[in-house]
Amino acid sequence: MLIYPCLLAQRSIADAIAVGRKIVGHLKHSALAYSCLEDIQGQLNQPIKRLQQDVQTRWNSTYYMLHSLIEQKRVLGVYVFEHELPDYLTAHQWTTVAILAPFEELTKKVSSYDALASDVMPAVTVLVRLLNRETDEDHGVKTMKATLLAAVKKRFSDVENNPLYFIPTILDPRYKDRFFSNNTAPEAKLHLKQKLQMMSRAEAEGSRAEAEEPPAKLFLKAQASTSSSLDTVFDEIAKEQPQAAQPLAAGAAIELDTYLREAPSPREDSPLKYWGVNKIRFPTLAKIARKYLAAPCSSVESERLFSSVSHIIDENRNSLTADNAEKLLFFIKKNNPATHFFSPLSESSEI
């Protein structure tokens, strides 16, 4: 995820990760040390679990490594009194690790197969609010939270001014205009209204040109075209009153006004299904939604696609033709709704 470099730039987090790798690496390379750790887990009536080693190129695995250390904190505390470890996390570093949970949850959300471009801006807004919020557990980590907050704001400073992000966010019925944090919602809605008017004008001109064609041509043309703390903040922002909207002109822009006046959809609902149901009520908005909501918010799913190829084309299937390999990968594994891996970019989209 794009937030990961912000985390690694923090010295306290980088130090905690380095210490965690030393601990896990020591126990992984010593069968005797791991046997002692498992004995302590049994004595403390803890489930027998192995610590997870991370892969440095995958942020999630780094978090899971640190999380596995937190789960075994009590066990490791007993172990370090009886045996030697190359290093150990300080009380401050244990707290630092706990703060990373929202980053991991958002990483999973925007890396999922059904994540849309509309998920980016709300994720950043929620993260900024969480880092701004003061809690009783902030003792000793306020500076780190402030540094993380500054890094996130800097990295995503222009996200609310980029139409590739703010247009799909407005057109996502779960978010609409509730997740703008820099008072940019009026300008974003004005920009979208102008696109609606341009689209309506273009369609009207196209209809007039088509109406002027001879009936024979029209006939031929017709024949040819036959989830935590994050959930709480998401709900909190969604229920807040939106900023006063600009007066909208008549025509397709009225669709936007009517759409924004309605309450946001539940976060677990599918925005694509919403537009499939409401495309008759908001025909022009639905066309723009189809265009902008089709974009994924990260490259994770495309990278997973390349990884999936290795499970289909191996030494036991080395005579597969390219055409058959494509069918196995896209039509069966990725685009079959029965496998829950259908893509919002497919031709069978609900919109």
Results as ranks from 00 to 15, higher is better:
75 V>C: 07
51 L>K: 00
63 Y>L: 08
122 P>I: 00
110 V>R: 00
79 Y>W: 07
82 E>Y: 07
158 D>Q: 13
88 Y>F: 10
87 D>S: 08
74 R>F: 05
110 V>G: 08
92 H>P: 15
170 I>Y: 00
138 D>C: 08
70 I>T: 15
147 T>S: 07
125 T>R: 10
116 L>D: 14
122 P>W: 01
87 D>A: 11
170 I>F: 01
92 H>A: 15
133 R>F: 08
40 I>H: 08
141 V>N: 03
57 T>E: 13
136 D>G: 13
59 W>F: 12
97 V>I: 13
152 V>H: 02
123 A>V: 00
160 E>W: 02
76 L>W: 03
157 S>W: 10
117 A>Q: 04
134 E>G: 02
134 E>C: 05
111 S>M: 10
148 L>T: 09
163 P>K: 01
106 L>F: 15
168 P>A: 03
161 N>T: 14
97 V>S: 09
61 S>L: 15
133 R>Q: 03
97 V>P: 13
143 T>C: 02
102 P>I: 09
132 N>A: 02
161 N>V: 15
153 K>W: 06
94 W>A: 07
150 A>Y: 14
144 M>I: 07
118 S>A: 03
117 A>P: 13
79 Y>T: 05
45 N>L: 11
115 A>S: 12
133 R>N: 03
95 T>N: 07
86 P>V: 14
119 D>M: 06
173 P>H: 10
65 M>V: 15
136 D>E: 12
114 D>S: 09
119 D>C: 09
87 D>E: 11
111 S>I: 14
161 N>Q: 10
174 R>Y: 03
76 L>K: 07
55 V>G: 05
56 Q>N: 11
107 T>I: 09
145 K>M: 07
177 D>V: 02
94 W>S: 08
56 Q>W: 11
135 T>F: 05
65 M>W: 15
42 G>I: 03
39 D>P: 01
164 L>E: 03
95 T>Y: 01
83 H>Y: 14
129 R>S: 01
101 A>G: 04
151 A>K: 06
109 K>T: 12
141 V>C: 04
154 K>Y: 12
122 P>F: 01
79 Y>K: 14
65 M>I: 15
175 Y>W: 02
173 P>G: 07
118 S>E: 05
88 Y>D: 05
174 R>L: 06
140 G>A: 10
48 I>D: 12
121 M>Y: 01
96 T>S: 04
160 E>K: 06
139 H>Y: 08
89 L>G: 03
109 K>N: 11
79 Y>D: 01
44 L>P: 05
97 V>A: 11
94 W>K: 07
157 S>D: 14
46 Q>C: 14
